[in-house]
Structures are given as C-alpha cells and as structure tokens.
Amino acid sequence: MITAGIDMGSRTVKVVFLEELKVEGAPQLKWGVKGKHMMFPDELDMDVAADKALADGLKEAGISREQVTRIVSTGAGRKQVRFADADVTEVSAGARGAVFMCPSAQTVVDVGAEEGRGVKANAEGRVVDFAGNEKCAAGAGAFAESMARALQLSLKEFGEASLRSDKSIPMNAQCTVFAESEVVSLIHSATPKEDIAKSVLDAVASRVCAMVRRVGIEGDVILIGGMVNNPGFVSSLKTSLGIDHINLPDMPEYVSALGAALIAADGRA
C-alpha cells in the first residue's frame, strides 16, 4: 500500500509518499518513504499548486496516481486540496511525523516562520496537549527573520553569528516591530552583531520555552519546523529548556507532510 501526505504551507508545498514495508522481525519498520517533493507555488492558486505538486511528486517517485490508496492534507491551505481524502491540522501532522522520526520523543517543539508551539505526544505520535502562540510574530521565526534583516544578515548567517557570542543582553521589547527599533539602537551603540543575534534568538527561545513548559517536558525533545536549520536557535533553546540534547529530524521541511502520510496510513483521519 502507498499513501501520501501533502503539506500546503504559506510559502511551499511538500508531498511525501509512504510505502508499506514487510521487514521480517522488524515490526517498527512498517513504513518507508517512497518519495518526496517540494515546490514553491508562487503565483499559483492553492488548489492548482496542490494538483501540480502531486503530479510532479508522483512522476519523480515513479508511481501512478492509482497506486496511492489514501491522501491526507495538512498546513494552512489544507482545505484547498481537492484530491485529499481527509485533512488534519499542522499540530497533529507535525507530532505524528516527529515521533516517527524520533520514537523516544514525547515533547515536540514546532517553530516555523509564523508559529511556535510546544506539543506533548504519546508513543503513537498522537497529540496529548499543546500550547502555542499563533498570530503573534514574537514567538516564531518571523521575529528572528525581521531582526536578521535589520542586521543585513541571512537567517543562516544570523544563527551562526549568535553561536560566536557568549553574552546575554536581554531584549526588552516583546513585539517584533518594537524590537526592530531596539536592535537599531543596539547597532548604533556599536554592539557586536554576534551579541545582538544571540539576544534575539534567546528571546524567541525563551518564549517558545514558556509554551513548552505549559505542556510539560516528557521523554526526549525533538525540534521541527524551519528553525531546525538555525543552529543558534537550537543552542539558545537548549539553554532555555535546561537540556543537553535536542533531536533534529533528517528532513525537517517534510515532517508535517510525512505525518499526514502516516495518518493516512493509520486510517485515523
């Protein structure tokens, strides 16, 4: 059996195909990734972008549409996917995908561009509890992006720069807009970029940490979402949470699409 998960994000569309494996004596290896595909919808309408992503993904994986028994959509535009059999929230899909990638993890920290949240999941990857800060850029990647722009650094350079700082300058502003002015005055007072970057990432980490603490830390911690690619943030988050190790997924961009495909395989949505 083959299932698919499609993650309709605000900037990218991701598709993952899962194939049922029959590995003797290894029941945990029930599913394997058969193919994955990512595209930028740009000017396309959501439903058109979804059709195209699926078609291109099928072609790349060398499978036909008929072979796919069940498709589940997730992400902001999940309702716009005409061919999906069901849709699930990003919270559910993210947790399912994360626990599949790191079975020892029960605490899933999901920090993307527009949202940050802490999720507690059980061993099957089902959501037990979650706390998030949606609709405010301060607890999400957008906060860091905006400050990186003020420093004229890419998000990657920004994260790397913060690793070179061992200072902790507290950020007073909670709001992204106000924090920009604060960063500008730090630049004017000749504060090194490294220290500013660390201050910003520490601020995001501490907000994310508060949300994670609301659900409580259980088992191992895994970080998913765009901020996985920011080593500075990962380091700040470890300090904030007071833990030595945070698991990072192999293909961070695909965690939610993978989760949706797994939920399609579970047959629970």
Partner: peptide, 15 residues
C-alpha cells in the same frame, strides 16, 4: 506587564 502569557505559564498548565 508585557509578558504575562509567558510569565504565568507555571501556574497555568495547558491541561
């Protein structure tokens, strides 16, 4: 005053 949602979390678990 600007961070109550975070500061009060210890007394207000998500559950």
């Amino acid at each position: 005053r600007r961070s109550l949602a975070y500061d009060c979390t210890a007394c207000k678990p998500a559950g």
